[in-house]
Design a protein around this nucleic acid. Structure first.
Lengths: 196, 196
DNA sequence: GTCTATAATCTGATAGAC
DNA sequence: GTCTATCAGATTATAGAC
């Protein structure tokens, strides 16, 4: 197999591992095992664990921005249906669908709360602001609309990180999940193994 | 000094450390140094690093719930001023003021995204749901209102975790922070050392 | 391109003195 | 109550073979 393909394989495994246990908590050995390669080879491919995490962040941000742009492209040609409420819904759906790429949103989230780390923090801030600008400029949201949209996104990330779906039977948890993911709830419960 | 006092001192140092570098990233040696005690003593006081983190979560949740209840108590006796918009504002202010207890909100956030960890995840979910119930039952919010309030809270946590204030001069970052913290911006910028 | 072996470091935890 | 000394284990990274 070519190094390029291995790289992608390792990147995917790393995304899952970092999403579950965070940058420091996930180990290169764990990533290697999931990718079916040796631990030193993981390090060899990316240089350092930090570079691997940065590569995971990079790929996650690319996919996020691409998903948003695709959602916008699907909506733009239409005529009057392009109010911001409609866009909010489309972008929200695109965001929720990123859950299928396991660990992607959570790796981002882990990056976001490591702002004190010199390299990771800088990349995370820049990435967050790229998303902000896309919503503000390309989607045409107002500052308040972007704020509301990002807030919902961060709550979704948190609920995923919490594995709140495992408590779905709890009335409070059920109501919260129903409210936060009105359309994508089955999707989530299946992902989290709470449904057959 | 009595063990009780040391405990509180160490707990405070641990809250800061865990807030900055996360559960796995922060070390007991780091906490010990910040608290002015030896590393083995930190372990002895709490048993294990995990127990220390759980104690930090416990304390953070207690303070959060207490701050919300105090805000509600200050608002309840009034007559007509108690609509949910008013409460939303009061509770939001109470939440933002918790930023003064450094690391508190971020330690919580780190706990929230470690839902896969058996002990930490369970406590984090239960704590989050306690907050949910308080807002729903004691504050009288609707499911949608709680959802919106929590979403804003998670965005605030994320912006703090990102140290977004260090990029305040960036137009997008400035606008985002202005929108997310309309009233508490100076407070934040001073906390983050972006203001004299 | 990929592995095995291993070095170097860090870190949580224990033992035991004072 | 608190420290010093230290161990055992884990983890990133390197060296070098194939």
């Amino acid at each position: 197999m070519k190094a390029e393909d291995r790289r992608e394989l390792v990147l995917r495994a790393a995304t899952r591992a970092f999403g579950e246990r965070g940058y420091v908590g996930a180990t290169t050995a764990e990533v290697a095992k999931a990718a079916g390669v040796s631990q030193p080879y993981v390090v060899r491919l990316f240089g350092t664990k930090e570079a691997l995490f940065l590569a995971v962040l990079e790929r996650a941000l690319e996919r996020l921005l691409a998903a948003f742009r695709a959602a916008l492209a699907g909506a733009s040609p239409a005529d009057a249906a392009c109010d911001t409420a409609e866009l909010h819904g489309r972008l929200g759906t695109a965001y929720a669908e990123l859950l299928a790429d396991r660990g992607l949103l959570l790796s981002l989230m882990h990056g976001f709360i490591l702002g004190s780390d010199p390299a990771i923090g800088a990349r995370a801030r820049a990435g967050f602001l790229e998303v902000y600008r896309l919503l503000r400029e390309e989607a045409g949201f107002s500052a308040e609309e972007v704020h509301g949209f990002l807030a919902e996104g961060m709550l979704l990330n948190t609920l995923i990180g919490l594995r709140m779906a495992v408590d779905y039977e709890d009335p409070a948890a059920g109501e919260l999940l129903d409210t936060a993911l009105p359309t994508k709830l089955d999707f989530l419960l299946r992902l989290e193994g709470q449904r057959p």
